[in-house]
Design a protein around this nucleic acid. Structure first.
Lengths: 191, 191
DNA sequence: ACCTGAACACCGTTCAAGT
DNA sequence: ACCTGAACACCGTTCAAGT
């Protein structure tokens, strides 16, 4: 008899999973090097698969970029968790934003691919990753406010907006993102 | 004899100038409505000319967008001049930035076309328009500092960076640009 | 000189055929 | 089921022919 008969989808065949992993790995390397200039055909040949296989795994170019960016949100969320738990004074939010800048800067190519692929939307996480992040950011804000280090009206929306600005400055090289961070963090202080 | 024989280029024929004006007018209307989604063929047919004529006047899509955006810099510079001359206290720079936001918001379609067309560059003016603007912004900063309303280390680069952030927030609708302005202007105050 | 638009080039995406 | 790659579609740009 077959090993399992649950209605839930079974684990993918090994070669299918490996193809997917190869495509993602190739995409991450190429986007890191050349940003939004990489073509779908390049990703396919770098991954050693046919172009059709890329589209079997990722419905469109944007979906591939989105998937390649998922690492980031995991990284950022993990850092936020540790900052949120470890911070003793009210500086958690500032450290969070600095880390966001560092992650966006470290892989500027992917940052610009994301921004270019999403027509109107910002560079925020989607779905449940977003919900989890929102929860952590909310807690960082509460702690900052409790410590008297943050304006009472500081909100999660501010943090997303500022992240988008960091992304924009880094992507366009229109200035020094650490300087922007200084200005904005200053603006977030009470009084 | 011909009216003039200077080596300087003569005035363009009337129909050529009219074609150029029609193309720009069509481009401005279309970009305002549909942002970066407008196609070169659409611009041509909306202007009532062949596609080749569009390319005779503007070497590439980006050049057309750049030209369509020139109005903006004239608008902004004029406002900066009047603010610079009229402001009594140190609020000139804040009013300047608010006006930039209003201009970018008023024609969001063009704003996003500009950002999408320029791969890496920001949404700053180029050439001599930039030089003139820089001069005025520099004076606004000096006056703000003299009035004790601005940090001593505030620089023209900060203003360009902030303008780029306003553009990003407005384009991606990732937040309330007036809120961003409040935060940043607060961060630019001394102490 | 300038205008026209058919044609080309490029690249994202599809789909019939193969395994 | 999944893979392949030739072919299609779309759109920016060019250029030979016309005025």
């Amino acid at each position: 008899m077959p090993t399992e008969s649950t209605p839930a989808r079974r684990a993918p065949r090994a070669d299918v999973a490996r193809n997917r992993a190869r495509i993602l790995e190739a995409a991450r390397m190429l986007f890191a090097e050349r940003g939004n200039a990489v073509q779908m055909h390049e990703v396919a040949s770098a991954a050693g698969v046919g172009i059709g296989t890329v589209y079997r795994h990722f419905a469109a170019r944007e979906a591939l970029i989105e998937a390649a960016a998922e690492h980031r949100f995991a990284d950022i969320e993990e850092f936020a968790q540790s900052v949120c738990l470890a911070d003793t004074h009210g500086q958690g939010l500032a450290r969070y934003l600095r880390h966001v800048g560092e992650v966006l800067e470290r892989d500027r190519g992917l940052t610009s691919a994301i921004e270019a692929a999403r027509g109107a939307a910002g560079s925020e996480p989607r779905g449940e990753a977003r919900a989890r992040l929102e929860e952590v950011i909310g807690r960082l804000i509460e702690r900052g406010q409790a410590a008297g280090a943050l304006r009472p009206d500081c909100a999660v929306a501010d943090v997303y907006m500022i992240s988008g600005c960091l992304s924009s400055v880094i992507r366009t090289r229109s200035g020094d993102w650490r300087r922007l961070l200084d200005l904005v963090v200053d603006g977030l202080r009470p009084r």
